[in-house]
Amino acid sequence: MTLTRSSRLRAAAALAVLTLAGCGQPAGTPAPEARTVASVHQATPRAVTGTTVVAAGDVVCAPGSPATADSCQQRATAALVTSLKPVRVLALGDLQYERGALPAFRRAYADSWGAFKRRTRTVPGNHEYNTPGASGYYRYFHQQPPGYRAISIGSWRAYLLNSNCTQVDCAAERAWLRRDLEAHPTACTLVAMHHPRYSSGPHGSQRSVTGLWRTAYRQHVDLALAGHDHLYERFAPMNATGQRRADGIVSFVVGTGGASLYQRQSHAPGSRYFQAGSFGVLELTLGDGEFAWAFHTLDGTVRDGGSHACH
């Protein structure tokens, strides 16, 4: 069954780089109110009002690891997250290096990104499974395997997926995803998983998640978030098999949460913006029928921003 949705598409945002002068200082726990963010890099600027979400993955170094310019910057990214005052934080896997052990979560993750644990929703990465069954991850975040679920964020439905297909039955996960999408038609939906379908980094585009992407594309999902490669990259709307499509999924790789940074290894199809020189987080404003994004780096710069209509 195919979801019934309006077929009207709005023109995609024209995109470039926007520089701002500084990010705010860490603030207290925010109230869950809507927030308005002006969309940027458009011929006709438009404000997007909605729920503020911050996303990143590949976050916390092993306990005791020293912070350097290009590694172990989880405290700095945590301060950046706090300054943006999100209603929700989406943590995109590989949250605690190297093994995702429970004592490490309780020491290092708790000391940084643990500050907003109650607002955080997570997906497991491959490093979490370096502890058998990802038991440290599941215990720290009070979850149960197989680790995928659906939640509501404002008017959006968000699917938090487990893309470790050697550890979980991804065929069963795809079937669940299809059923839930059909049962809960909404104007805008997103999927979040650790492994990116498309990436120009060393790990590259992950064919193992093609099935999850195919299900998401056929059911008109609007937005996909991932980590795994330690970089930031945005892609044009794509289907699951490497073609740009007007009705495709806009996707982001946000592996810049603090652990380390990688370099570009290829030019994946559909890549529209790439940076691997700075840690940072992706701020999303999830509105009614549209979304806006802004990638913030630690130096107070928005490196990439824009808005897009839902299908």
Rank of each mutant, 00 (worst) to 15 (best):
A292Y: 04
G211C: 02
H127A: 09
A78W: 03
H230K: 10
G22E: 01
V40I: 08
L298H: 12
G24P: 15
M1F: 04
D247C: 13
Y148G: 01
L84E: 13
G133Q: 06
Q96F: 03
I153W: 04
L15S: 11
R178L: 05
A236D: 15
D111A: 07
F235M: 09
G300W: 03
I249R: 12
R157F: 08
C61L: 05
P145S: 09
I151K: 02
K85A: 15
L298F: 07
G242F: 05
A21V: 10
F279K: 00
P145L: 06
E182P: 05
Y137N: 11
C23A: 13
Q263W: 04
R106S: 02
R179Y: 06
C72P: 06
V221P: 15
A110M: 02
G211R: 00
G305H: 12
C170A: 10
M193A: 08
C61M: 03
L20P: 09
V37G: 02
R218P: 05
L181Q: 03
R234I: 06
S278R: 02
G114M: 11
T166Q: 01
V168W: 13
L177S: 12
S71W: 09
H195Q: 11
E33A: 13
Q143M: 10
N130I: 03
H296Y: 01
V250I: 14
R264M: 04
G114N: 12
A276W: 12
S278K: 02
R106T: 01
G258H: 04
L177N: 07
L231P: 13
F141H: 14
A78R: 02
Q167A: 06
S71C: 12
S260R: 04
A11N: 08
S205R: 06
D58W: 06
G289E: 07
Q74V: 14
D169S: 01
S307V: 13
A67G: 11
Y129H: 13
S260Q: 06
D229H: 07
D58E: 06
T186S: 05
R119G: 05
D169Q: 07
G147Y: 07
T4D: 10
G64P: 05
R10D: 09
Y217G: 12
E98R: 12
